[in-house]
């Protein structure tokens, strides 16, 4: 109860502050952009690190006026419990955004967003779009995927070699010295 009333107080205070400063919260207008997203048919069913995935989007102008200065971009977030974070797409994708000078009513833009899977985990991809005149952001529905981990090197192969070989040479070193001492 205390928490609720505290939150209510904060919201009231924030509202009063906005009114006092004249900065009223902007209300999103109904967007005339629609974004449909679907995974590419070539995507593997259970991707692992190093695989490539692609998502197809269709951005449509659902209004009766042209949309000028359209920009759409890809965002990726990790949603694993305790690891929730936005992902820097630097290593994941070179295709991060598209732009279009004008989109006529009913016109669509089909785009494929390829990416390379860098880390394992549960991810959510979303495409967002804004226009020059629009007052709010239009997001696509979420597209979720899971990336399986792939060990680059197998410990079952590395450990026997990495530990065994120095041990072997070390033991032969000791044996050699002991033999030399006995002979001497």
């Amino acid at each position: 109860m205390t928490t609720h009333s505290s939150k209510g107080c904060s919201a009231l205070f924030a509202g009063l502050l906005l009114v006092a400063t004249g900065a009223l919260p902007a209300v999103a207008e109904t967007s005339t952009i629609s974004i449909a997203i679907s995974p590419a048919t070539a995507n593997v069913a259970s991707p692992q690190m190093g695989d490539r995935l692609a998502f197809n989007t269709v951005i449509r102008n659902t209004g009766d006026k042209s949309i000028d200065g359209l920009i759409a971009w890809i965002s990726l977030v990790q949603i694993d419990q305790g690891k929730e974070q936005p992902i820097d797409l630097e290593d994941w994708s070179a295709h991060k955004a598209i732009s279009r000078a004008s989109l006529k009513p009913g016109e669509t833009i089909s785009t494929q967003w390829p990416m390379r899977l860098i880390q394992s985990g549960h991810y959510r991809v979303v495409i967002s779009a804004v226009s020059r005149e629009g007052s709010s952001l239009t997001p696509s529905p979420f597209a979720d995927f899971v990336v399986r981990s792939k060990p680059v090197v197998e410990s079952s192969r590395v450990l026997p070699v990495a530990l065994g070989l120095p041990l072997l040479i070390g033991m032969s070193f000791i044996g050699w010295r002991r033999r030399g001492r006995d002979a001497g």
Binding site: M49, D91, V152, V153, L159, A162, L163, L165, P166, I169
Partner: peptide, 25 residues
């Protein structure tokens, strides 16, 4: 011994480091 130690150390680092797992084999 030092040489195989270096190669072993590098191999073990590759196994133990999750950051290095971004590398291709």
């Amino acid at each position: 011994l030092a040489m195989v130690g270096v190669l072993s150390g590098f191999s073990l680092l590759l196994v133990g480091s999750t950051e290095l797992s971004l590398l291709d084999n």
